[in-house]
Each structure stands twice: as structure tokens, then as C-alpha cells.
């Protein structure tokens, strides 16, 4: 699993593409319509537009680095919110507002009440359910019993997109399969297993 401590020293993964605006200093400043009253026309620089680009950037960044949980205070130090070349960074308040917006879109879920850590769904749980079931089906594991640990950490899933999947996200994904009678989760507490059908 990705530890947040080593996150900002990580090299750029090959599948990560920066948004064009990433090279623009203004991108790192939240647009306030009140701060520029002379500009009453909504245009491309409105917060809604800026926000949607930010949201997409957060998702692709987390996908590329396989980040399941984003710890906000750490993330602010990474290139996600901090462009060191430009010496520009996104303020904590703005980042929190951005994540709050992403919560309403279903892309993010706060972990706990402190709103310090966000679970990032760069794939929705239902998508994960399909990806995992696809893998189960194609590897002939229908009718087999697997541990949840095995799905996220096992050697067999090492080349799968869901390898290292967060246990919470995995449970949510499996719940979809359970609902569709394609899986049954059993066991106790931390020692869970799942049987696929």
C-alpha cells in the first residue's frame, strides 16, 4: 500500500498526464467571483470550471499512483496540489472545498468525521465489482473461496488494477456482487473470505 510519507518523493508514473492548466499559476488560486466584481460574465475561469478540472486531476493522479486514501495534509505537499516548478500551491481550504465537492459527485468519501483523510474512488465501487468479477471469471475461480487479503495483496493479483485495493473499497465493491448473488462474504471481523458464483 502507498504510504503517504513517501508519496511526494515518488517518480512520475508513465500513465500520469498533467492537465494543461497545471503549468498556469492561476490554476492554483481559487477563483472567487466576489474578488473581481467587475467580471460578472461567467466564463472559463469560473470556479465551477476550475473545480471540475481539479477533480479530474485528483482522480487521475490517484489512479496513476494507486492512492486509495488521500491524507489531505500530506497531499498538499505533493505535486498533486503543489507545483514546485511554479512555486505555486493549492491552499488547504480550497483543497478541502474541492474534496467536499467531489464527495457530492461520489468520487470521494471522507474517512471518519475529521475530514482529514479522503477515500478516493478513481473507480466507483460498482466498477471495481465488475473488474474483480471479470478477473474471477477469466481465471476460473468461480466457486472458489478467496480471502479479502488475497484479493488485494496476493501474488495472483499483482498485475491487476485492483492490487493493493483498500479493504474498505473492496468491501463496498463486494457488496455489489453480493447483492447480485454473484458472491457471498463470510467469516468474522478481520478474517473475511468471499466465495464467488
Amino acid at each position: 500500500m502507498t504510504t503517504t510519507a513517501t508519496m511526494f518523493t515518488k517518480p512520475k508514473p508513465p500513465n500520469l498526464e498533467y492537465p494543461e492548466l497545471y503549468e498556469f499559476p492561476a490554476f492554483f488560486t481559487r477563483y472567487h467571483s466576489s474578488s473581481s466584481p467587475q467580471n460578472t460574465q461567467p466564463n472559463d475561469t469560473t470556479w465551477a470550471h476550475q473545480r471540475s478540472i481539479w477533480a479530474a486531476w485528483v482522480l487521475s493522479y490517484c489512479r496513476a499512483h494507486k492512492i486509495w486514501k488521500l491524507q489531505l495534509s500530506d497531499a498538499l505537499e505533493t505535486e498533486l496540489f503543489y507545483n514546485r516548478n511554479l512555486n505555486r500551491r493549492f491552499k488547504q481550504r480550497d483543497a478541502a472545498e474541492l474534496l467536499e465537492y467531489m464527495v457530492t459527485e461520489g468520487d470521494v468519501e471522507w474517512e471518519g468525521v475529521g475530514k482529514a483523510t479522503a477515500i478516493v474512488y478513481w473507480r466507483k465501487p460498482e466498477e471495481w465489482a465488475n473488474v474483480i468479477y471479470e478477473w474471477i471469471d477469466s481465471t476460473g475461480q468461480k466457486g472458489s473461496v478467496l480471502t479479502l487479503y488475497e484479493i488485494s495483496e496476493g501474488d495472483l493479483t499483482r498485475n491487476q488494477e485492483f492490487h493493493t485495493i483498500d479493504p474498505y473499497v473492496l468491501r463496498k465493491a463486494l457488496d455489489f456482487l453480493v447483492k447480485r448473488s454473484l458472491a457471498q462474504v463470510f467469516g468474522a471481523n478481520e478474517e473475511m473470505g468471499v466465495k464467488f458464483f
Partner: peptide, 27 residues
Amino acid sequence: MGNSSSRITAQDRAILNMKLQRDKLHI
């Protein structure tokens, strides 16, 4: 879990227990 219409057999539970032990060894 706790389904009344469980499709989990005793063998499934035995296999799960062994796999859990294997996971522990892995860790």
C-alpha cells in the same frame, strides 16, 4: 454473512481458515 440461505459449505469454511493462515504467514 449470516445469510439464512447460505451457499457456504463446511468445506468452504475449512478452505477459508487455511487461506487465512496462509495470509498470516505471508504477513
